[in-house]
Design a binder for these strands. Structure first.
Lengths: 146, 146
DNA sequence: GGTGATTAGTTTAATATCAAACGATATGAT
DNA sequence: ATCATATCGTTTGATATTAAACTAATCACC
């Protein structure tokens, strides 16, 4: 294949990948905003829901955002009564973030809805196609980790 | 396949798709920020570069952002001397946005660099794999258009 | 024990982003 | 001609996001 064709193939593939990711994101984020959560807020609640109480640094690492950003997101979640901060008595630099009862109830429901949206979305592809897509995406994504 | 397995396959595929898109975005956005452009600014310049002068509404539609957002992005591009606004004499509601000479020079260079980054990135996959990935992504993305 | 480096979290300044309200302009129906 | 409606762009208020400067607390090493 010529360089020109390789280039246009790569650019086309990239565009399609981006569009697919964007359209999938659109559908899941609709579920989140319908529940009054931003994408980041959902990410924080989901991390706490599946990993238990975490300090802000760990939350930032989990959802790939800066610690400064997490400060604000937790502020807003705290205002809405979904999480609470607790100063660690061992090492007073740490704030451990806990889900409140309201937070647990909300994320349980919204997470299930988001999962359902994803499953419905991916149902466009057969199981075999999903496996292939996953394998190729993984190969591509791995490069980023390096 | 059981419902449980279908679900975990779909969720895993979704995660991999998101990670691949994110890692590809990270690499292209590095090129843009290195040139002093935000992703949105790049999007606006690229639209003008390939489509010629456009009104703000069309730019918003092209890069899938709100018109309110475009107002700010154009403000910043104008401050940096990369674009200029021109009031349409036919219909004075419209502002046509033009690339300046500096803007044209910058986007030509940055666009080429971004393309090169994408091509390098996608080179992780063979031509056949790229075609398969593109086909599956397109199938998935199309659902969003509906 | 004290000092220097490190770490956790906050704050600040800049940009992004949307939805909704708004102002100016144009169009259409009567 | 006039008034209602629609359209383009701006503004506003809220949240997101980062990088960088900063504070508070801890740790490591001598």
């Amino acid at each position: 294949m010529s360089d020109t064709n390789l280039k246009s193939l790569a650019l086309g593939t990239y565009t399609k990948l981006m569009r697919a990711a964007e359209s999938a994101t659109n559908r899941t984020s609709k579920v989140m905003t319908a529940a009054g959560l931003t994408i980041s807020q959902f990410g924080v609640l989901e991390a706490l829901y599946h990993k238990g109480p975490l300090c802000q640094r760990d939350i930032a690492a989990k959802i790939l955002k800066s610690t400064g950003n997490i400060t604000l997101v937790i502020d807003n979640l705290e205002k809405n009564g979904l999480v609470r901060r607790e100063r660690d008595s061992e090492d007073r630099r740490f704030l451990t973030v806990h889900l409140t009862e309201a937070g647990t109830g909300l994320i349980a429901k919204v997470f299930a809805d988001v999962e359902a949206a994803i499953v419905a979305d991916l149902a466009t592809l057969t199981a075999e196609e999903q496996e292939t897509l996953g394998r190729l995406c993984k190969k591509l994504g791995l490069k980023g980790a390096a």
